[in-house]
Write a protein that binds this DNA or RNA. Structure first.
Lengths: 216, 216
DNA sequence: AATAATACTGACCGATCGGTCGGTCAGCGG
DNA sequence: CCGCTGACCGACCGATCGGTCAGTATTATT
């Protein structure tokens, strides 16, 4: 939609659109859709309000554009998870760590998506959030299923369930770490790497003592 | 603050306040603070707008009152988790199931709290949400720690981490089940009981084949 | 240089926001 | 019967909302 840096002297143009999108992303993620006005966005983007409407037909369209950018940002960063080699524990730990780190890096966007998740309108954004999650999730499930077929994972495990356990723990860490920090029992609220390590340890081996279990 | 059913003929009074609170809870939980106007609340509560301000000095105060009611509702329902007896797996499964069921039953309130969680204002409600979580969480951690001291749980497990894994999976199921439903790999998005069962199974035994692990 | 298109602005619109105000009315103590 | 109090309402307030529009600056094409 926008040509940027097409040429040196040609089209230095204006980066208003990007500034508007960036401002909108910041504000929407931090305060939510309804708490942010077009004026707020325009002010932060250093343009006038009507200019926002010159580039986006409505507040809703602007919001969807932000969400779409978010989706793309998530999508572009998944690649390196695919080629990972090594043992299953190694791969899982790498995935868990990268996934959590990504959630935190893309904090604004993550918050945006999670916010959208709480709007339980079946269409509005659920379908859109689905596209965000689909990549990460399907990839992880495939990996687990393959490992299972190789016998590296118990046959009676539901691979999708294992994936959900891993991802949910990452998501929860992201959204609740500010609360977790206040619990005296918790000393890992600021250490994502350690969190991922402990998470994968539990996911792989469980919390019971490591002794043979009655045949199952 | 409010006297209810003080006497039969005396003070049948008015239940406006409760209707207002109920309406506010519904609307705030469903749409968020900023998307709900006092007019909306008044209309649903079948009172006029100024009556809302007669009972609550501001929209903010009304919101906090709703949040406080939510906190209380959560608190009152934890009791039965405490007395649970049985083996560790039994107790964990009961806890996970009850906890998830509770999240869903108190759906409106849960959503309210989760919404608040995404506002990363360190004070505003984080401290308040802390009071909501504290009960469930500390209880679960204590239970796990006790079991650990009895040798029923691996010594190198962080009890708080195990608790987080369990709770985060429940929370994630609650807030994301509408999305999970669309994944072809997932067939448990509508079956909380089965979800809890699989969750505890993984938490207890891990996903690796149940054979002795190299000493660690 | 003239033209056409686009980027951009300030003034403005009706609607609605959170909140106030003046006042009515029922119940209760004296 | 009077006076008071609290519940309640309709009308209203300034501010701000999302959005429009006429007009100006800037740039690309000819």
């Amino acid at each position: 939609m926008r040509l940027v840096a097409q040429n040196s002297s040609l089209r230095p143009a204006s980066d208003s659109v990007e500034r508007i999108l960036a401002a909108a992303e910041d504000l929407f993620a931090e305060h939510g859709y309804d708490a942010v006005s077009i004026s707020d966005i325009a002010t932060r983007a250093d343009v006038c309000k009507s200019n926002v409407f010159h580039h986006f037909t409505s507040k809703d369209e602007l919001y969807l554009a932000v969400l779409n950018d978010a989706r793309q940002a998530f999508f572009e960063l998944i690649d390196d998870l695919h080629d990972s080699a090594g043992t299953l524990p190694e791969r899982l730990e790498k995935f868990a760590g990268s996934h959590l780190q990504r959630l935190i890096e893309l904090g604004k966007i993550s918050r945006l998506v999670l916010r959208d998740l709480l709007e339980n309108s079946p269409e509005r954004s659920k379908q859109l959030a689905e596209k965000v999650f689909d990549n990460n999730f399907s990839l992880l499930v495939d990996t687990l299923r393959t490992s299972q077929q190789r016998g590296e994972i118990r046959a009676d495990i539901n691979p999708a369930m294992a994936a959900v356990v891993l991802i949910s723990a990452d998501v929860f860490f992201f959204q609740a770490s500010n609360v977790l920090r206040h619990f005296p029992d918790i000393d890992f609220a600021d250490d994502g790497a350690r969190y991922s390590k402990m998470l994968v340890d539990i996911l792989l081996y469980g919390i019971l003592p490591r002794v043979p279990i009655a045949a199952n």
